[in-house]
Design a protein around this nucleic acid. Structure first.
Lengths: 226, 226
DNA sequence: CTCGATTTGTTCCCCCGTTCACAAACTCCT
DNA sequence: AGGAGTTTGTGAACGGGGGAACAAATCGAG
């Protein structure tokens, strides 16, 4: 969770940690369904999702009581219930801003369509990129943002620009009416109340791995550095 | 944190949540340094990093006492201390497996070099991709993995393959001696004791945003579905 | 040298999340 | 029908992290 919480909490409250795991369960269920499994226990699903089975059951209990004691969960039924809870039974239009190397990769990412997301526009400020067609969608000028958001009712924006441009892009997105941002630029974004931001940061992930790696190697560099 | 913990804990223990924020502080400090700032308060740095100042001070206190009361922190000094703690004062060789769209983007990512990481090899199982040269490094057969890891002492591997291949790649990596994996494939990896895995999953991030987005819109779909 | 202003380092408390453990509920076999 | 075996859903204990608040330390002015 990055942004502030909405003041008017609706109905039942699902913990943030649980929300973050629901997509994992959803994927595991899809895999099970593809392999012909129609029913599974919390133990089996937990293993497929890489979590503790007690945690899985507690997570699912926030959604309701969708299992059968002594039996387990119906794969298709549970899958639908989770998808509905997350909100991916409907289609979410998405705009991607910044069509460099990463933007290309994101636009071509097949997991978009199959999981309830539809890329309605690719935007870039660089006129040289606006000639391109990526993944069947043509790259348009960044200035079209407001019109596109209004036309398609876009709520989710993806920022794949260099760090220097990210905050400006975010500001424009928010102004245009976007309320959820996925940020790939290595910058801290500041946005107003009610806007959610999630960040994906490659170099941070690598640095976290480096820290643990360093410790595995018996902690060199123990000088006190006074 | 994804994998198990090493049994023999060394010296002082830094909480995982703090470790995840140190790279953010490091970047904020670099930005401050670039703008000519030589000293900053915890309040200023916290704002630049997008966190609470009390949390920042507590995080830094795990590293030692590097500030001066009544004054603040010396930007360069603190930056070096954090970099040393994370382990990015040395250079980490990295291999990337799977040179599709995403692999291209990762290989070209400039944040690698500048933050203590060096891409020593790009690997792909597809012979057609092995003709390419990406970001000055030529794509080599996946089978070269073991030799490259041994030669350069690679500890960190990046998986950018399709989901179906990811587990096999991970197994080979671990067997070759890699002990930290950054996984971009949408799969749960299972690895042995002592191997760290971090995952970056686009569709999960989008689904989390979708969930919150759905709730903002006044929670439709309140049928009980008996 | 002393006093006020500033800022760090740390203590204390609370809340969220994880895990264990068990009662409730269901199936199947006899 | 009844009992044994399974598996879910949840209550309770526990640990970690976040934030407020304060004492300790440093600087600067007079």
């Amino acid at each position: 969770m990055t942004s502030a919480r909405t003041p008017h909490e609706t109905a039942r409250e699902i913990p943030e940690a649980t929300v973050a795991r629901l997509p994992v369960y959803l994927r595991a269920l899809s895999t099970l369904a593809d392999s012909g499994t129609t029913t599974c226990s919390s133990e089996a699903l937990a293993q497929a999702a890489g979590v503790n089975s007690a945690k899985l059951r507690k997570d699912l209990s926030y959604l309701g009581s969708y299992g059968t004691r002594g039996v387990g969960y119906d794969v298709d039924y549970l899958r639908y219930q989770i998808a509905r809870e997350i909100g991916v039974t409907q289609d979410w239009p998405v705009v991607i801003v910044g069509i460099g190397n990463l933007g290309h990769a994101l636009a071509n990412f097949s997991g978009f369509r199959s999981r309830g997301f539809r890329v309605v526009a690719l935007l870039d400020a660089d006129p040289r990129r606006q000639a391109e067609v990526v993944a069947g969608v043509d790259v348009r000028p960044f200035d079209h943002l407001e019109a596109i958001v209004a036309e398609h009712g876009v709520a989710i924006g993806v920022i794949a620009t260099p760090a220097a441009a990210a905050q400006d892009v975010a500001d424009r997105m928010v102004e245009a009416g976007i309320t959820s941002i996925l940020n790939f630029a290595p910058t801290v974004l500041s946005v107003g109340e009610g806007v959610d931001v999630r960040k994906v940061d490659l170099s941070i992930e690598l640095q976290i791995l480096a820290y643990h790696e360093q410790r595995k190697n018996g902690a060199l560099g123990e000088e006190d550095a006074s």
